[in-house]
Design a protein around this nucleic acid. Structure first.
Lengths: 127, 127
DNA sequence: GTAGTTGCAAATCTTTTGCGCGACA
DNA sequence: TGTCGCGCAAAAGATTTGCAACTAC
């Protein structure tokens, strides 16, 4: 696997972002410093990075995929009003993979989404 | 809001299904007994039912939306191999909404996804 | 009778794919 | 010089929308 400027820039943007960006958000961000970048490259690169375990798609409702650089155990705060996704750390949640029987299902990872209102939307800011 | 045969059939199919169906899966199911049904009606009805709190979209990765009739507190087992979605009940998880500070975020609900291998895929069945 | 709903078809939007060119080993 | 990755444009899918006919109430 080659290390290319596009892959570096896309991965770096993902690491530095707190927004859990969609492919288009990443495209808008990275394009600024790399105007020739294409959206198709974003998609291909995300797939590649996901394949080697540097990146994951996060489970959210809504129209677009959202991605996260895999840094450590953490979960997500999802705003029901504006759709923003924030990080949430809690040691208790990291111990989740459950003691109870799962009927033959083999657990590999746990993802917790806490839905609600982000501070901005709570205060009545229009999106 | 009117009670129509389409709405009854779609909601009923969702309640009776354990598959957490996508709109197309619902369409395939309900069409069998209601051949005139259109996929657009599935989408419109799901949005309507979601609006009145009978149905929710569940947060999953992948290409299609998945829906759930809201019955009680429960969470989901998601197969990394075949994409199937099963239910998982655990009282401990129902108490989750966290004690820790959320930095101004107002929690309203919690969704837990346990990803792994379903019994069928564990045993090496090809999807 | 009227407002709300359906089914169809077209439109929109997101994501994927095919392919020729260029970069790098 | 062969392989891999990029950008472009087209394709594929999923979801949404506009609208005329129809139905629940």
């Amino acid at each position: 696997m080659n290390v290319t400027p596009q892959r570096i820039a896309i991965y770096r943007a993902l690491v530095e972002s707190t927004a859990h960006p969609s492919p288009e958000m990443l495209f808008n961000e990275v394009s600024r410093s790399m105007p020739s970048l294409s959206l198709a490259t974003i998609y291909k690169t995300l797939e590649t990075l996901e394949g080697i375990g540097l990146v994951r798609e996060i489970p959210v409702t809504g129209d677009r995929k959202r991605f996260d650089a895999i840094v450590e155990n953490h979960h997500h705060l999802i705003c029901n009003a504006c759709g923003s996704v924030g990080d949430y750390h809690d040691d208790a949640l990291d111990q989740l993979p459950p003691r109870r029987r799962l009927g033959g299902f083999i657990p590999q990872s746990v993802s917790v989404n806490i839905s609600g209102l982000c501070p901005s939307c709570r205060d009545g800011n229009s999106h």
